[in-house]
């Protein structure tokens, strides 16, 4: 994250701590799409992704305004961490029902092994393959290649070392290619 952006976020966080709704709205506008995407890949139903996304912003507000000792060093990482926690809570409390047909706009058009090498891979195929990855691998691929985060930033979110994150990223990418019939 650039220095300017980091300083801007420090200012926003301080303002939110003091009940500044405009600052809160700025954070919402900045992060809502990326967080929704992140959650949507994990929970795979639109309604649930929307619920979790809105809940996580509310949690941010509550944490900052109701807790004098609240310290958020990296806002983006914090938001993704909260998203992961909420997703984990959801799976703990409800039985996981997995169905590709329930996916937002994902529909597998081909079984991975049947894709011919000449055929151009569509975004749907890639999204479908992403949903088949292990949770953590899916997260790192989405964070790295969809959201554009660096490995050291992802490491903070998934609570691993940067080196371990790079390894996971490499393995996840290999698996994704395998699913897409490229290996």
């Amino acid at each position: 994250m650039s220095l300017t952006r980091r300083i801007e976020e420090e200012i926003l966080l301080l303002k939110i701590k003091h009940g500044d709704q405009q600052a809160f709205a700025t954070v919402y506008d900045t992060y809502v799409d990326s967080l929704f995407r992140f959650v949507a890949f994990r929970v795979r139903t639109q309604e649930l992704a929307q619920d979790i996304t809105s809940e996580l912003f509310l949690k941010l507000w509550q944490y900052l305004t109701q807790n004098n000792e609240a310290r958020v060093k990296n806002l983006r990482a914090y938001l993704y961490q909260v998203a992961r926690n909420l997703i984990a809570d959801h799976y703990r409390s409800e039985q996981k029902t997995l169905s590709l047909e329930e996916a937002i706009d994902i529909g597998a058009t081909h079984a991975p092994g049947q894709l011919s090498p000449e055929m151009r891979l569509s975004l749907r195929d890639i999204e479908s393959a992403l949903t088949k990855l292990k949770d953590e691998w899916q997260e790192v691929v989405v964070l790295a290649y969809v959201e554009g985060l660096k490995p050291h930033e992802i490491a903070i979110i998934i609570n691993k070392s940067p080196a371990a994150t790079r390894v996971i990223l490499h393995r996840a990418l290999q698996e994704l290619k395998k699913l897409l019939g490229q290996l």
Binding site: S34, A40, Q46, Q50, L123, I126, V146, G148, L176, Q182
Partner: peptide, 15 residues
Amino acid sequence: LFNQLKEIQVTKRAP
């Protein structure tokens, strides 16, 4: 592949 993954950022947005 990376380009297509990046495209998801544009196509997959919150309603």
